[in-house]
């Protein structure tokens, strides 16, 4: 197998690794970096459980090759809390019961981080539309929407 040497910043740490050409970013994060908070829920880019931030933008890490992130910055759920302080979205998911089994949660939160950056005070319709690439089978989305609303309120006026 062809292998590539990549240097990337993951959750603020610079990393240099050899990766197979076919290794997806999701597999790289889970298997090579032991960052198992990024979950793999499907094989057709349909579920969004693997969503991470790539240079600040939410991407499905199962659709990106590890080799493609050379020189980029990746942030996963494990890197979201700063200095032991939960990100407002993490706190909001707990506050509003935005998770049950927790499997889709990292993807939901990472997606929402990007979404609220571009739309800091979204309507319910906009939130639901933003979430359409991510499946949750537990919550019926009701409390995920509530969580994102709540986070948006808490984050308003606070620079991201």
């Amino acid at each position: 197998m062809m292998s590539n040497r990549i240097t990337t910043t993951i959750n603020g740490q610079s990393v240099t690794k050899e990766v197979e050409g076919r290794t997806t970013l999701s597999t790289f994060l889970r298997e090579d970096m032991n960052l198992t908070g990024t979950h793999i829920g499907c094989d057709t880019s349909g579920c969004g459980a693997c969503t991470v931030l790539l240079d600040g933008k939410a991407v499905k890490s199962c659709t990106i090759l590890a080799a493609q992130v050379d020189g980029s910055e990746v942030k996963t759920i494990e890197g979201l809390a700063q200095n032991g302080q939960l990100h407002p979205l993490q706190a909001a998911f707990k506050e509003k019961h935005g998770l049950q089994c927790g499997f889709c949660t990292p993807g939901m939160i990472m997606l929402a981080v990007d979404f609220l950056e571009s739309n800091p005070s979204p309507s319910e319709d906009e939130i639901r539309h933003a979430l359409e690439g991510n499946f949750c089978r537990c919550t019926g989305y009701h409390n995920i929407v509530e969580s994102i609303k709540h986070a948006a309120e808490n984050m308003s006026g606070v620079p991201a």
């Binding site: 032991n34 908070g37 759920i77 494990e78 998911f93 998770l99 927790g102 990292p106």
Partner: peptide
């Protein structure tokens, strides 16, 4: 009462079977 278990899930520290090595 807010859920006790949430902390590990919202920080990516849940331990699902596929996470075990």
């Amino acid at each position: 009462i807010k859920r006790v278990e949430d902390k590990r899930f919202i920080t990516g520290k849940g331990k699902y079977t596929d996470d075990i090595k």
